[in-house]
Amino acid sequence: MSNQPPLKVDQLSIRYHHKPVLTDVSFEIPPGQTVAIVGPNGAGKSSLLKGIMNLTPAIQGKVQFYGRTLEEKRLTTAYVPQREEIDWDFPINVMDVVLMGRHGQLKFWQRPSRCDRQIAEQALKDLKMWDFRDRQIAQLSGGQQQRVFLARALAQQASLYLMDEPFAGVDVATEKTIIELFKQLKAKGNTVVCVHHDLNTVGEYFDHVILINARLIAAGPAHQVLTQANLNKTYGGRLSLLNDLTEQMYRSRLDNAHPGD
């Protein structure tokens, strides 16, 4: 895996019904850095992450993890979904949620071993959640819930972390813990990719930035990408003709009809 980038996205296109969500997004990210995916609401940030993890089917495009397919690199890729996605009334405690991170390594009939438990314990301690291990998840605050999700990802012991808005709606303590976590991960040479919405903190928290708005605007080191011109392009509205025509293309089901490629 020496010189292959941890993540390489090639011409990824995603749609929702007929609406183009992302069109032809291509980029690659360097190893051992923190990467932010930034863009306005509805720009397709979360969809990009889901498309990368194949949770939302992409209509075209290729994603490579260290030069391999997702299937080959599943175990080294950890995904942290948005908090809203799950039923927080679910009868389960914090420890069990974190242990789920070990499931990629277990066969379906296997129970988590002592070793798995130690890994989960360490992950919880790293996120200062060990004291809450027996709590039912409904009894946690928003920030604590987020930390449980992060601990679960940590328990996967991956080398690439994809996180969907980890900073959304969390308290200051959690924010600090997450930043601390980023530092640790980077120190181990791991890569973190986050969907991020706060322009004020992007430059401070992240090394590398990907600007999108339905298509790729710019990607590169934070100080190069975060220019006024690029931000204007990202937040200054979309190319309406491009969008309209792409939608019309999907509506006509032309992409199915087209032979070849």
């Binding site: 949770l55 950890a78 979904p81 389960i92 499931h103 277990l106 296997q110 679960r152």
Partner: peptide
Amino acid sequence: ERLKTVTFHPSLAVSL
């Protein structure tokens, strides 16, 4: 264990 994961969080299960 599998049923628990799949039930609690389908998209995590897929990503695993």
